[in-house]
Amino acid sequence: MSRFARRALFALAALVPFGLGRPAAADSFPSRTITVVVPFAAGGPTDTVTRLVAESMGRDLGQTVVVENAGGAGGTIGAQRVAQAKPDGYTLLLHHIGMATTPTLYRRLAYDPVGGFETIGLVTEVPMTLIAKKDFPATTLAEAVKVIRRDQEKLNYANAGIGAASHLCGLLLMKAVDAPMTTVPFRGTGPAMQEVLAGRIDLMCDQTTNTTEQINSGAVKVFTVTTPERLPALPNVPTSTEAGLPEFQVGIWHGLYAPKGTPAEVTARLSQALQVALRDPKLIARFAELGTTPVAQEMATPAAHRKFWLADIAKWKPIIQAAGQYAD
C-alpha cells in the first residue's frame, strides 16, 4: 500500500532480531499495565486506531494496555508527556504524521520532537476525506470548489489545531483551490465532527477512520478521498484526481513511540507485539471498515519506522516553510 510498500525492501534487515526469538532481557517485560498516550481528543481518528491496536497488543503482551487522551496544542502536549516519561516501556505514544511536521511547525518546544523518542513501528496510513455539513450547497467536488471560491469569506473550516492531520489537509485544499477560508480549531477532530453534524461548521478534511461511518449513514456530505484509487469502504466516492483536483492528495500515517533511552530489548518486544496485532484478523477487518489497512510487517519495526519518519520530516519542512505558518 502506497509509500510503505515501496520502502519495505529497505527494511528487511530490521526483521533479523525477531527471527532469533525474544530477547532474554525482555522476558520480564511487561509486568504491569502499559499506557498509550493519544495526543488528541477521544473519538478522533488517531484515538480509534490506537484503541484497536492497544487491545490486540495487550493480548500478546499478557498485560492491559490502556489508552489515555492528552489533547491540545496540535498534539504536542501528549507528545511532551511521553518524551519526558520514564524510559521503561510503560508509557508510549501513538501519533500520526504530526510527528513529521512538528519539528518545523514548532520552533520552541519543551522537548526534543525528534531526539526525544525511540521508534517502535509504523501502524497504518489512513486516507483523508473532504466532508461538509449535510445542507452544504454542493454535491460534487467541482461544485464545492465553486462555492468555496465564491463564498470563502463566509465559510468556516474545522481542524484539530495547527499540525493536526485536518490542518495539514486543509492547507493543501486551500492551496489547491486558491481560496483561504476561516479556520476554526478544536481540541480534536471528534469535537469538530460534532459541530459538522450539528451544521455549525461548513467543511472539514479528516481521516476515513473518523468519517466513514458518518458518510455511509448520510450524516455528512462527502466530495472526495485523497488517494490515487477508490476505497473499498467508500466505493462511490471519487478520488481527488477523478474529481478534477489531482494536487489534493495526502495520507496520514501513524506510528508507535517510546521515550528516548527505552532499552532496545523493550522496544523490540513492543514491536513484536505490534506486528502480532497488525496480523490480527479482527483488527484487519475493523481497519477495512474504516477505510484503511495495516502496514506491511516489514514497516512495523523500529528501524523502518525511523527511516520513514526522518524522510517525511525532510519532505514537509519546505512545504511548511513556504506556507509561513508556524504554531509559535
Rank of each mutant, 00 (worst) to 15 (best):
Q275N: 13
A219D: 09
E213I: 15
G261H: 09
A258F: 04
V225N: 02
L274Q: 08
G261F: 09
L245N: 01
T208F: 05
R269D: 05
Q249K: 15
N210I: 12
T241N: 09
P263T: 04
P246A: 01
G244S: 04
V225T: 14
A243Q: 10
I215L: 07
P246D: 02
T241G: 10
L234S: 02
P238G: 00
E229M: 11
A264N: 10
S217K: 15
K221T: 05
T239Q: 08
K260D: 05
A264P: 03
I252P: 01
A268P: 06
P259Q: 09
F248V: 08
P228D: 02
G251K: 13
R269E: 14
V220R: 09
T226I: 05
E213H: 14
G244M: 04
T208H: 09
L256F: 00
V250R: 13
L270E: 01
F223W: 08
L231K: 11
K221E: 02
A243P: 11
T262Y: 10
V220I: 15
R269C: 04
P228I: 05
F223S: 05
P235G: 05
K221L: 10
Q275S: 08
T208W: 09
F248T: 04
Q207N: 15
L231S: 03
R230E: 03
A219R: 14
T211G: 03
T209V: 12
A258Q: 03
L270P: 06
L231A: 04
A264Y: 08
T224A: 12
Q214E: 13
S271H: 08
A233T: 13
L234H: 02
T227R: 12
G255L: 14
A219Y: 03
L270D: 01
V225G: 01
L274T: 10
I215H: 04
H254I: 11
L256I: 08
L231F: 06
K221V: 07
T267C: 02
V276H: 14
T211Q: 06
T262A: 07
T227F: 06
V237K: 07
N236Y: 13
R230A: 00
G251W: 10
F248R: 07
Q207Y: 11
F248P: 00
G255R: 13
V250F: 14
A273Q: 04
G251T: 14
A273Y: 01
P259E: 06
R230P: 02
P232D: 14
F223E: 00
E265D: 15
A268N: 11
L231T: 08
P259D: 02
P228Y: 00
A243W: 07
E229C: 01
N236A: 13
T224C: 09
T241W: 03
T241R: 14
S271W: 07
K260C: 01
P246L: 02
L245P: 01
P235M: 11
L231R: 11
